[in-house]
């Protein structure tokens, strides 16, 4: 959003947005997360998984969700990763029973509910539509942007079981884009944990609280499904590159650069015109929504 402002104001012509981290080999991610614990460490409370697991457990209490919903997300995204040679989990298929045998990490989350920790980098270049049309590659444009940051510490938060920041960020982005959910061909959702995908799609309005299990069931998000989600495998099964995993995948899909996992006749999906991307931070404390279109 800042980059769009800088382009609109004429401050910049081309903006490189990049991310790189030796998160796995350097151990950087665990250092970052353990420093965040503060006095919570006194009670043995560390890292992001447990924070999201607290939100997910309360959601299980308030409406129908839980591992029976989340397994469709973990397994569905793995099927996409199995089509993507760059994905960390490319060679590692996962069935529903594999999911159910996955060890508990912080219950109610199993290992398979957690994103990867990955060495790597991602980048994309943002410019004005006018300049982009003079470049040799297919153009992907931003139709809508939204941002909403509920911010409150999870101890004080009222948004843990929704609506999260996704509700208002989504409304802003759809309003700017002038489209509805029915116009979306695929979603690239920030998926630090399986539950994050459920609560984000729920808050965008794809289904109501407790309706996720039925919505995801039957391969909805998988290759050939009616609403493909996280078509690279996502943070769960491709690579953890912060919000750039979903955003760059959305751009690549609309450019037609995704090889075997390219949405189209080969995957049993339509060639996408519009892709909805999300990012979120903290324990559901910040949210950004970006709607992209081809040309």
């Amino acid at each position: 959003m800042h980059a769009v402002g800088a382009l609109e104001a004429g401050i910049c012509k081309y903006i490189l947005i990049s991310y790189g981290h030796s998160a796995r080999s350097g151990g950087g991610m665990s250092q970052v997360l353990s420093r965040m614990a503060g006095d919570d460490a006194v009670f043995g409370h560390f890292g992001a998984a447990a924070g999201y697991a607290l939100a997910a457990r309360r959601a299980m209490h308030e409406y129908n969700t839980g591992p029976d919903t989340w397994k469709h997300i973990a397994v569905g995204q793995r099927k996409w990763a199995n089509l993507n040679p760059r994905a960390v989990m490319y060679d590692r298929p996962m069935t529903e029973s594999d999911y159910e045998r996955s060890p508990w990490i912080v219950e109610p989350f199993r290992l398979a509910d957690n994103c990867l920790v990955t060495d790597g980098g991602r980048a994309f270049i943002l410019t004005t539509a006018e300049r982009a049309r003079d470049l040799p590659h297919p153009v992907v444009t931003i139709m809508g942007l939204g941002m909403h940051n509920p911010a409150a510490d999870p101890v004080a938060a009222r948004h843990l079981t929704g609506p999260t920041g996704a509700r208002r960020a989504g409304e802003q982005a759809f309003h700017m884009a002038g489209i509805t959910l029915e116009d979306v061909d695929a979603c690239e959702i920030y998926d630090c944990f399986t539950y994050t995908v459920e609560i984000t799609l729920q808050d965008y309005g794809f289904f109501g609280p407790g309706e996720g299990e039925e919505w995801f069931r039957g391969g909805t998000i998988e290759p050939g499904g009616r609403t493909p989600v996280n078509t690279s495998g996502g943070l769960l099964s491709e690579a953890y590159q912060m919000g750039l995993t979903p955003l760059t995948e959305g751009v690549m899909q609309l450019m037609g650069r995704c090889g075997d996992h390219q949405l189209g006749p080969a995957t049993g999906n339509i060639k996408p015109e519009i892709i909805l991307c999300s990012d979120n931070g903290g324990i559901l404390q910040t949210h950004a929504c970006c709607i992209l279109r081809r040309n």
Binding site: S30, A50, L54, W104, V106, F109
Partner: peptide, 25 residues
């Protein structure tokens, strides 16, 4: 109890002897 989680992994080795343990809001 507003919400709770059960740790099955000791992120800090000093909690290993307590597994599985409950953190709650």
């Amino acid at each position: 109890v507003y919400s709770y989680v059960v740790y099955h992994v000791a992120y800090d080795p000093s909690f290993k002897e307590d597994l599985p343990y409950v953190v709650a809001l």
